[in-house]
C-alpha cells in the first residue's frame, strides 16, 4: 500500500513535468535554470551510483571494478544490455 502510494506520487510528478512543457510559455524559463537542468541527470546518476558501490558500509573493490567495466562496455558498444551484462557477470564471478 505504501509502495503503491509512492508509485502514484512519482507518476504524478513525472506527468506534471511532462505536461508543463506543452503548457508553459517558452520565454519564461531563465537561461541559468535551463543550463542547470542539463546537469541534473549527470549529477543524479553519479550520486545514485555511489551507495551501490559499498558493501556493509565500506567501498567494495569488486563492485567498483564491475562498475568500471560496465562504463567501458557502454563506451565501446553503446548497448545498455551489454554493459549491464558485463558488470553483472564480473560481479557474480568475483
Amino acid at each position: 500500500m505504501e509502495r503503491l502510494g509512492l508509485i502514484l506520487a512519482v507518476a504524478a510528478v513525472t506527468y506534471a513535468a511532462r505536461i508543463a512543457g506543452f503548457t508553459i510559455d517558452q520565454g519564461r524559463i531563465p537561461h541559468r535554470l535551463d543550463r542547470a537542468l542539463t546537469y541534473v541527470p549527470i549529477a543524479a546518476f553519479a550520486a545514485l551510483v555511489v551507495p551501490g558501490l559499498s558493501d556493509d558500509g565500506s567501498l567494495a573493490p569488486v563492485r567498483i571494478g564491475a562498475a568500471l567495466l560496465a562504463a567501458a562496455v557502454i563506451l565501446l558498444t553503446r548497448q545498455l544490455w551489454a554493459s549491464l551484462l558485463a558488470g553483472m557477470v564480473v560481479f557474480w564471478l568475483l
Partner: peptide, 11 residues
C-alpha cells in the same frame, strides 16, 4: 547490483 550498473550506463 543492476541498479548502480544502470546508473553507470546512463551516466
Amino acid at each position: 547490483f543492476i541498479f548502480p550498473l544502470t546508473f553507470v550506463a546512463l551516466l
